[in-house]
């Protein structure tokens, strides 16, 4: 590190130490002014965040091993502080741009303090260079962190949603049901098919009921996906019953000209279960009749 850069860092670090409270407060005010804060973060929390950032920035500048431009990414404490800040604000609904701007706003605040404490243009310039290097990288890191967090959350949620929305339930001995909810696209169909077929194998199920009461709409591709699932169930050696075809959907299917004639359909899940039990040979009992044991 050059002597000039070293001196610049020391100068910024001193300003951060001597005007700790003022910098933190001005930073918060500037963020309010620039409208980059989101609702839901309390005043105390904001203050704590500001103090933490000022302190870790000072700590990082004192670490002579790391070049200024790499402090944000490689100084453990500063990095963590920035990541936490990004995470907290992302949860509050802040945009990635607002999070970056918030970090960058700290530059103006510290520069203002420095301008008050020195008349020497060269000194001020050196300090400004240091500030820019460390906080530009900091702003980018906060932005990256936001994007990474969001991506992780999105992919995890979509996986969970996919699994959650396709529960295969055992209705009776050798009878399984999968209630479908929402929209049925290619990747959903693949997940449904996979878990249904595996359950059929594990349970040695004879009949699988696919209930589409909760399916929003049926178009040609949904009908095609349903047919595919039925075909796969049959290849496994089990029978398939589709239940819950509501009148508008029945109309759509008829208009689409999809031939569902080879597929066993029932209006309700209860009717489908009754049909399934006839297939397995477990005739349903008349209502109100119990079986003595």
């Amino acid at each position: 590190m050059s002597a000039i850069e070293s001196a610049g860092r020391a100068r910024v670090a001193r300003a951060l130490r001597d005007h700790e409270a003022e910098i933190a407060e001005n930073w918060i005010n500037l963020q309010v002014e620039q409208d980059v804060l989101v609702a839901g973060i309390g005043e105390g929390e904001l203050r704590g965040e500001a103090d933490q950032l000022v302190a870790s920035l000072r700590g990082a500048l004192a670490d002579e091993q790391l070049p200024t431009a790499r402090l944000a990414g490689e100084h453990a404490e500063l990095r963590r502080t920035l990541a936490d800040l990004s995470l907290r604000r992302a949860r509050g609904g802040a945009t990635p741009a607002a999070i970056s701007l918030a970090v960058l706003a700290l530059k103006d605040v510290v520069l203002e303090i420095l301008r008050r404490s020195t008349r020497d243009a060269t000194e001020l310039f050196e300090a400004a260079v240091v500030l820019n290097r460390v906080l530009d990288a900091g702003g980018i890191l906060a932005f990256d962190q936001y994007v990474a967090t969001r991506e992780e959350i999105i992919s995890r949620q979509s996986r969970q949603l996919m699994e959650l929305s396709t529960p295969v339930v055992r209705l009776w001995r050798h009878v399984l049901a999968v209630p479908l909810i929402g929209t049925l696209d290619t990747s959903r169909t693949q997940v449904v098919m996979e878990s249904l077929l595996q359950s059929i194998k594990d349970d040695e199920a004879q009949v699988a009921i696919i209930d589409i009461t909760g399916v929003a709409a049926v178009d040609t591709s949904v009908a095609h996906h349903l047919m595919q699932t039925v075909a796969a169930v049959r290849l496994m050696g089990a029978d398939c019953v589709i239940s819950g075809i509501r009148p508008p959907i029945a109309q759509t299917i008829a208009q689409l000209g999809v031939d569902l004639s080879a597929i066993l359909t029932r209006a309700t899940l209860a009717d489908a279960l009754a049909a399934a039990l006839r297939i397995t040979g477990d005739a349903p009992l008349p209502a109100g009749v119990g079986v003595g044991s």
Binding site: E194, L197, K201, A231, A232, V233, L235, M236, G237
Partner: peptide, 11 residues
């Protein structure tokens, strides 16, 4: 005894 992955792929 067709395996599930085989059934899916065939379809």
């Amino acid at each position: 005894g067709m395996r599930p992955p085989v059934a899916i792929t065939l379809v």
